[in-house]
Design a protein around this nucleic acid. Structure first.
Lengths: 251, 251
DNA sequence: AAGTGGTCTAGACCACCGT
DNA sequence: CGGTGGTCTAGACCACTTG
């Protein structure tokens, strides 16, 4: 990272001061983006990175600290620092916020039943940064907790990133969707934004969720982003909240 | 903080290792709890605290870092470190997640219209750690954005902390409720948990919000905590999401 | 025992804010 | 200018994991 040469140069072109640790972080993020280290892999130790960048260990630590806080990396004392993976419950199991009323988390079962490439609607295009009519992959699936169907999701994916996705691939295995996306397509969801509303069930949703048309459902619209805040998925989920609730911590 | 004497003692009684910076943090949190420094006040500088505790500045920094991450303190480069206050938009303006569809945040107007001390129901008692029948203060209020009423809140407060709260006090001034609570009662809300559901409007809510009975509303149940994760408020809000949505970032 | 992350120090210097 | 938070270093030592 050659701080003596690099820092003045950076500051000359950018009046916005960028500390060394942030430059290192940016480099590491770019490395993740390039797939230098895959999900679940250990990255080099702090000491080795410090040597490689010619900085002190504390500076590397601060870069890694931020990335860990953003859920890109996971630190494990005595073992190393690892690239987050959706397979690991302790890092990337934080996207489904629906819990049963009794509070006991239960493994959910995904049942995808539709997967086709379609032309993006205006709404989907806007969310994904596309032009209306651009190709997107449309997936429909149901989610159930303990045998009870509680979510009807309609998912839209960038077609150029998820080309070749089939219903059979979606049905195979027990993995979560994001786990499959990262292992089969190299696309890692690192954060997302959700917009929630209460709506009345339409006939399709009512049928899937076993409620009456017009019954209240929780509408959850999610845009999910990979590295660099690039949107790659938009989904519209309808949650039946008769015996489940959406949990949110205001930290 | 006398690390040479304190650390071995701590480790002897507690096999769970507690680093120095965490002991300092605990001390600072306790000081905030005791009201040593009030909302908006500057706490002593890092250097002074380091001297006082007989540790290095870096150790104090780490303690403060954690507290800043938990929104108890706000750092301002060149000025100092300050106790968070709900008056300051940049720290404690993060509890109302409802936004208009057009995305432009608008100041909200609170219209409280009911305030009485009542006996806690089983539901309220459970949320606040009370016995059913214990006294709580029940507040009802409406929230409107740009003249449109969008939220009907029913708020339950620990009677022993908020004794003397009146409708007149609630109506006075432009401050948010939490701002009033912290300045008039010394109770600072530092975090909260919300549970969301979609429900059909009952007649009271429908009347307040200008929707039909049975129309879908977003039910938001919130438990709010002060220092030490002590629950001090429980509220049940009904949000009309016809032209507003609840925003949540999955970070 | 070796290797990793985690804590702590003492001191230097930088960026930002006020006077 | 002085004071405050922010960055960075070089090195010591501790805690945890694995062989």
């Amino acid at each position: 990272m050659n701080r003596d040469a690099n820092r003045p140069a950076v500051r000359a072109t950018a009046p916005t001061f960028s500390p060394l640790y942030r430059q290192i972080k940016d480099f590491l993020v770019a490395s993740l983006e390039r797939g230098e280290w895959g999900p679940g892999d250990a990255i080099p130790s702090e000491g080795e990175l410090a040597q490689r960048f010619n900085v002190s260990q504390g500076t590397v630590r601060k870069a890694i600290d931020e990335m860990a806080a953003e859920n890109m990396l996971v630190r494990r004392q005595g073992k190393g620092t690892f690239v987050s993976t959706h397979d690991d419950p302790r890092s990337f199991y934080r996207f489904l916020r629906l819990l049963p009323d009794d509070g006991v988390a239960v493994p959910s079962a995904s049942d995808p039943f539709f997967c086709e490439t379609i032309a993006a609607s205006a709404e989907v295009a806007a969310a994904l940064g596309l032009q209306p009519g651009d190709p997107v992959i449309h997936v429909k699936r149901l989610l159930s907790f303990a045998g009870e169907t509680v979510v009807f999701d309609q998912i839209y994916l960038l077609a150029d990133l998820f080309g070749g996705l089939t219903l059979d691939a979606l049905r195979a295995g027990e993995r979560s969707l994001y786990s499959l996306f990262e292992s089969d397509f190299g696309v890692r969801m690192i954060n997302a934004e959700e917009r929630l509303r209460a709506v009345g069930a339409d006939s399709e949703s009512a049928g899937h969720l076993g409620v009456g048309v017009g019954d209240p459902l929780l509408l959850v619209e999610r845009t999910a982003y990979t590295y660099g805040n690039k949107p790659v998925e938009w989904r519209r989920g309808l949650y039946c909240t008769r015996s489940h609730y959406y949990k949110n911590d205001l930290g």
